[in-house]
């Protein structure tokens, strides 16, 4: 019962090599820069970036906000895999990639503005196009102030509502780089197709079955595989393809 009391009194540190893709907009210059540092097992990658800023290089630029996996600001590619830097612990990264050497690059869904920072507004533009709100809410019957929605009904799409728009899925999705509106943007519309409070289904279907719609998806499931919120994104895209809302 008390095993973790003992287990967690030993601390281990790792010698890490981080190679970070840099970009300086002032000189329009890109390069790789390598930093060596020693860090404890449960430090996060955002803690490593902060330490680099304090101990080695104040100019390294990166983004975070909540720093606990809730806002989707800190997405980067680590050894080619899109991930949240605030959720990645040193010991987990070492176990996952089987190495202490990491290559860190920005996500690919929008142009880079400096180092690991991309122009998020451009990325979000796709989500905005998918209308992430109730376009036309249903009128409840007279006298009814709150609608009843069964937990069973919500359970069908609840997972999709957990999306934080970190764009990890869109970074991993090859189709997104070829005209597809992208898994998270498509999913934002799918949620409202499944939500009984939305009356405007036609406009949503028109987008999902358009040129940039779900038929661009090749069901590779890379999105599901990388989603830090463990949302089965491909499942929702598949529902859209089948029209099974």
């Amino acid at each position: 019962m008390r095993t973790n009391v003992k287990e967690k009194t030993m601390s281990q540190t790792y010698k890490l090599t981080l190679t970070i893709r840099r970009y300086d907009p002032d000189g329009d210059k890109s390069w790789d820069q390598t930093y060596e540092l020693e860090a404890g097992a449960i430090l996060r990658f955002v803690d490593l970036f902060r330490r680099i800023n304090v101990e080695q290089d104040a100019t390294l630029t990166w983004v975070s906000s909540c720093e606990h996996g809730q806002c989707g600001s800190c997405s980067v590619q680590v050894n080619g895999r899109p991930m949240l830097a605030c959720e990645l612990l040193v010991e987990n990264a070492v176990a996952l990639f089987g190495t202490t050497r990491f290559r860190i690059e920005p996500v690919t869904v929008a142009p880079v503005v400096r180092d690991l920072v991309v122009d998020w507004e451009q990325a979000y533009e796709r989500v905005h196009r998918a209308k992430p709100y109730v376009i036309r809410p249903i009128e409840p019957p007279p006298g009814v102030t709150e609608l009843q929605i069964s937990p069973k009904e919500i359970a069908r799409y609840e997972d999709a509502t957990r999306c934080i728009n970190c764009f990890c899925c869109a970074t991993a999705c090859i189709s997104t780089h070829r005209n597809f509106i992208g898994p998270n943007a498509a999913m934002a519309s799918v949620v409202r197709l499944m939500d009984s409070r939305e009356e405007e289904k036609d406009e949503r279907l028109a987008l999902l079955y358009s040129e940039e719609g779900v038929y661009r998806c090749h069901t590779s499931k890379a999105c599901t595989h990388v989603c830090p919120k463990k949302i089965d994104v491909a499942h929702f895209i598949a529902l859209a393809k089948e029209g099974a809302f």
Binding site: S65, C66, H68, C71, S73, W120, E121, Y124, N165
Partner: peptide
């Protein structure tokens, strides 16, 4: 101050 209003702290 964040990348998009959705990233604001109320979301946590």
């Amino acid at each position: 101050k964040v990348a998009h209003p959705q990233k604001s702290h109320t979301s946590t």
